[in-house]
């Protein structure tokens, strides 16, 4: 194999990639999401899911929750780079395996099938705080809240039962107990 003749050095050893959930509190102003997302794409970081909404109407603070993966060095960089953005107030970083953190994602499933399969679908979702929010003769819309991987699995299970459409919010996170992240 011929080696490339790049003007740059070869990559060094790459560390093990980990999943992290980054929570960013930002001023809710024009372009702020573009700044955050642009930082990720510009520096080659990964975004698996993204959830954004204003959480403080008075102070115009939005909370952005980003599921990402990277080596510990990359995760550290993501945090430090985010903190440099002017509209960013604070940045929290949770490992996906951290037991002190709650993660939830909301999903809507539209199942189009015969009654029998509709019932099966309802049953499959039951464990995950499911609510049927719409139904017709031919269809159901079920809302569930669960972990990302649980929803991934549900999607697989619902496919043979007539799953026609999926909408997911992306994960949001919060610490357990009385503590809040400062």
């Amino acid at each position: 194999m011929t080696k490339s003749k790049s003007a740059y050095s070869e990559p060094g050893k790459v560390g093990k990639s980990e999943h992290h959930i980054i929570v960013v509190w930002v001023d809710n102003e024009a372009g702020v999401l573009a700044r955050v997302v642009g930082l990720f794409s510009g520096r080659g970081y990964n975004i698996e899911s993204l959830a954004v909404a204003e959480v403080d109407k008075k102070r115009h603070i939005s909370r952005i929750t980003i599921v990402t993966s990277g080596t510990p060095q990359v995760i550290e960089q993501i945090k430090l780079q985010l903190k440099k953005l002017i509209p960013v107030h604070k940045v929290a970083d949770f490992s996906r395996n951290d037991p002190k953190i709650l993660f939830r994602e909301l999903a809507l499933f539209k199942v189009v099938s015969a009654k029998k399969n509709q019932e099966k679908a309802k049953k499959a979702c039951k464990k995950y705080n499911s609510i049927v929010i719409d139904k017709s003769k031919k269809s159901l819309v079920i809302q569930v809240t669960a972990l990302r991987r649980e929803i991934d699995k549900l999607v697989e299970n619902l496919k043979p039962l007539g799953l026609a459409s999926v909408s997911r919010t992306g994960a949001v996170a919060m610490t357990r107990g009385a503590e809040i992240f400062k």
Binding site: E10, G12, K13, Q77, L80, Q81, K84
Partner: peptide, 29 residues
Amino acid sequence: DDRITGKVDEFSPKSKKVHIDIDPSSVGK
């Protein structure tokens, strides 16, 4: 910077390194 370090894995292998910088994101990058 990469023009300084060359190949990162073989950069100054035996030294203790101190980094003084105003920008936290420069550290450990």
